[in-house]
Amino acid sequence: MSEERGAAFKAFEASGWSARAGTYDALMSRATGFAIAPLLDLVRPGDRVLDVGCGPGTLAAAAADRGAQVTGVDLAEGMVAEARRRHPGLTFLQADAEALPFPDGAFDVALGAFLVNHTPDAEAAVRELRRVARTVALAAWGPEDEVAFLALPAAAAAGLGGVPDGPDSERYASKDALAALLARADDEPDPRAGERAAPPARDVAVRVVRDALRVDSLDALWDGVRGGTVRTAARIEAASDEERARVRERLAELAEPHRTGDGYALPLTILVART
């Protein structure tokens, strides 16, 4: 992706997530919450932990509860403000994952929960995590057909505009691809670093987490998507009233096979890679 297109996408994401800082919990935080325990397997009391793409600070707070010294960063000002409001005892900063404002080796553990789904240059972001921490863990969504709460609304809104060019959301949706991303951070020195070599190679392990996100109603799914995603929500918001009604009707059709009583059990798969 060109630098200009990457900058435009970052601005779009930062604005979108800032606008949704207060509504993120309705759906998205419950889904991402399945990744907290496996990500924190690396964290020990006293560890210096960096949470990159921290959102409203839930993962950072969980790490702090384990006795870690935690700093969270996010590109979206609104998310940083929300994290500070919720967790006033922790440190949260606005920062770009692709250019972290910390010296080499400043942290013991760097966490990137679903970061690689959103940054235009995931390789640069992971190099930065490896630069500032001795150990890195990443979480990413699995294949689209195994993450129903995202895939079904995206399919229902397919063909609508309102979204700038961005990274392929499926790029790291397999164990091999996510492991390779973390391994490439070992192999490729950052071109901005001059002669500085990449960190020494370490083994990459990937854990697969499978569960189901339970949603009480179609209204809860619809509102949760609009308040907890950026790309799909932007398509819905840019649509006409007639188009929006068709998207909702199509979502109801797609979600029907997952119905359980009055609500839905939407399967999800999360990949957690670590060095």
Rank of each mutant, 00 (worst) to 15 (best):
A14V: 11
Y24I: 01
A26W: 09
S29N: 14
S29V: 11
S29I: 08
R30S: 13
R30A: 15
A31L: 14
T32I: 05
T32G: 07
T32K: 06
L39K: 01
D41G: 15
D41K: 15
L42S: 08
L42D: 06
V43I: 04
P45T: 09
P45A: 12
D47P: 07
D47T: 06
V52L: 01
C54W: 10
A61Y: 10
A62S: 11
A62F: 10
A63C: 05
G67I: 14
G67E: 03
V70Y: 13
G72C: 03
G72T: 04
V73C: 09
V73Q: 00
A76N: 05
A76D: 06
E77K: 15
E77T: 15
E77P: 12
G78Y: 04
M79S: 08
V80L: 09
E82L: 10
A83E: 00
A83T: 02
R85E: 04
F92H: 08
F92M: 09
Q94S: 07
A95R: 05
A97C: 01
E98A: 15
E98D: 08
P101K: 13
P101G: 10
P103K: 04
D104P: 13
A106M: 13
A106R: 14
A106P: 11
A106H: 12
F107R: 02
A110R: 01
L111N: 01
G112Y: 02
A113G: 12
N117T: 15
H118K: 11
D121Q: 14
D121T: 14
A122D: 05
A122T: 06
A124G: 09
A125V: 05
E128V: 03
R130S: 08
R130E: 00
R130T: 02
T135N: 13
L138W: 00
L138D: 02
A139V: 02
A140D: 01
W141F: 14
W141M: 08
W141K: 12
